[in-house]
Amino acid sequence: MSTLLDLNSVSLQFGGIIALNRVSLSVEEGSITAIIGPNGAGKTTLFNCITGFYRAQDGQILLSTKHKPLDLVQLLGGKFRLFDAPWSNIKKVFYGFFGGTHLVARAGIARTFQNIRLFSEMTVVENLLVAQHRHLNRNVLAGFLNLPGYRKAEAKALECAFFWLDIIGLSDLANQPAAALSYGNQRRLEIARAMCTEPRLICLDEPAAGLNPNETDQLSLLVKRLRDEFKVTVLVIEHDMSLVMSISDHIVVLNYGEVIAKGSPKEVQANPKVLAAYLGSDED
């Protein structure tokens, strides 16, 4: 197995608060990696750095590609500093104008959100069609004239949308507004929407939050299926320990912005530092 994502001493500071302190971890291709830790440990901040919503102040986030690894931090554009090498400044200005989160998504990283962010007034199908916009014919003239190439691309996108609706079991609700779905269905729709961007890595931020045990079981089946059937790598933040222990191959534990343990579920469970972080320790 090769490494898909490699974080190299990533740091981020908000004022005086060190949200991430030299976090290094790697995600194997085709694995399910979980990030756990107490509230406020910096899990979601780490996610936002990986998916390009925050810009890491220090360190590298390398995504392996066919050619040389892509540094996601650079895609967001950097602070212009006069005495840097001219070439790197030109690059920074370019990405400052035209770069941003969407380039990270286009590099193959999709995500879901802790508080669901669907396009709530649009229908379920439309949510999935928006996600596929990169594979559609976006030529405005072709759309006005309804040219065959445009129709074909639309039909293909629609097919893909219904394919995912079948998988998450929402085909009957295809033309309902997304806001009308139940909470569990909204969570699944958000995962399907992320998958429609054809990612290599999908980042799920607390996918089981607010789900009942039955729905959580369905979710764990879905997540395993994403990995086994659709060959995506999964990075997941979750508080539900039984879910984490049952699905993940690899676990990273964060506390106060630092990685305190890494390893298989068994190793992490036995790690005294983890127990101390979760339950408090006797020594203090």
Partner: peptide, 22 residues
């Protein structure tokens, strides 16, 4: 059309749009 859907998606949630590569 894709552009019209993108506009509407932007109206609904800009952050989600960015996460989808729009």
């Amino acid at each position: 059309m894709p552009i019209g859907r993108a506009w509407e998606a932007l109206r609904e949630d800009e952050i989600a749009c960015r996460s989808l590569g729009l």
